[in-house]
């Protein structure tokens, strides 16, 4: 913008015309109400448009995962597995899960800031499938999860990660991660609606995410942990997800762990999706 810019309004003053306005105020047949899927994908398109207009938000899903991967690989690699290359074979699926699951919290932060703006009032007065605005928002976030996972995979491959399951194993692992993250995001939509400020959403997210991701089998083999901690790690859904993804990427899919992950995902959507919608309708 330069100082000489003149808004078009200043050049040609707008005068509402009865004819043109009356022409657009038609009372003809209205289009049919869109399907739940169509409404959700439309909201997903909105999320993509927002990324297009505010590309800085992609920093969270690229720089942050790269730093996490590099930092922990070089910090722990030598001590825990003898070499960073050895450690990566164990560690990469785990850090991918950690980074992406941590990124899910931006769903709550984003919703919290978004819903304060007038545009959500308009969405909520539209006769569309009620969860569409939130589902669409998470569809947009799924793209970010895929981007983050892909970034980490590329960094891993450069550093020497060699998945036995090949290309299909990697894609399968990322797919399972995305399904779980989609389900996990509903926790944050609930907090995003429930808590008052962006800051408190961040605070609660950290409180949940740090224990959940660190007290798991992401960084080390739980066998050296005290019994009570092993018990927690055992039931932590993140551990099941990590084991499942490791197995898929190694080319030896562990069906039991995959099943547990899918059950956990379904439960998350059922519980937190319901709570979210209850808050959304009441707000």
């Amino acid at each position: 913008m330069t100082t000489t810019t003149v808004t078009p309004e200043a050049v040609t003053a707008y005068a509402p015309s009865r004819e043109t306005l009356s022409a657009v105020l038609t009372r003809g047949e209205r289009p049919r109400r869109p399907s739940a899927l169509s409404a959700s994908t439309t909201f997903g398109w909105r999320a993509i448009l927002k990324i297009k207009h505010v590309p800085e938000q992609l920093f969270d899903v690229t720089a942050f995962p790269i730093i996490m991967t590099l930092m922990f690989t070089y910090l722990f690699g030598g001590a825990l597995a003898g070499s960073t290359r050895e450690y990566l074979q164990f560690f990469l699926p785990g850090i991918m899960v950690t980074s992406v699951v941590m990124i899910t919290m931006y769903t709550g932060v984003g919703l919290n800031t978004d819903i304060e703006k007038g545009v959500f009032d308009r969405f909520r007065t539209l006769p569309v499938w009620r969860p569409a605005a939130l589902v669409g928002m998470i569809f947009g976030d799924v793209l970010r999860y895929i981007l983050a996972a892909t970034t980490i995979m590329i960094v891993g491959l450069i550093l020497g990660f060699r998945p036995g399951g090949g290309f299909l194993g990697v894609v399968g692992g990322i797919a399972l991660l995305v399904v779980f993250s989609f389900a996990f995001s509903w926790i944050w939509t609930m907090f995003g609606l429930f808590l008052r400020s962006e800051k408190s959403v961040m605070g609660v997210s950290m409180l949940v995410l740090f224990p959940l991701t660190f007290l798991s089998n992401v960084f080390v083999d739980p066998r050296t942990m005290p019994g009570w901690l092993q018990a927690f790690v055992e039931v932590n859904p993140i551990s099941h997800l990590v084991t499942a993804i490791r197995s898929i990427m190694a080319g030896t899919p562990d069906m039991t762990e995959m099943m547990w992950t899918l059950i956990a995902s379904a439960l998350l959507i059922l519980v937190f999706g319901t709570l979210t919608m209850r808050l959304y309708n009441r707000k």
Binding site: R33, L49, R122, V128
Partner: peptide
């Protein structure tokens, strides 16, 4: 309306939501 979106995108978005 969504301030991050353009005027046209806003109207297309809402029109799509109306079917």
């Amino acid at each position: 309306v969504d301030e991050d979106l353009t005027g046209s995108e806003n109207l297309v978005l809402l029109a799509r939501l109306l079917g």
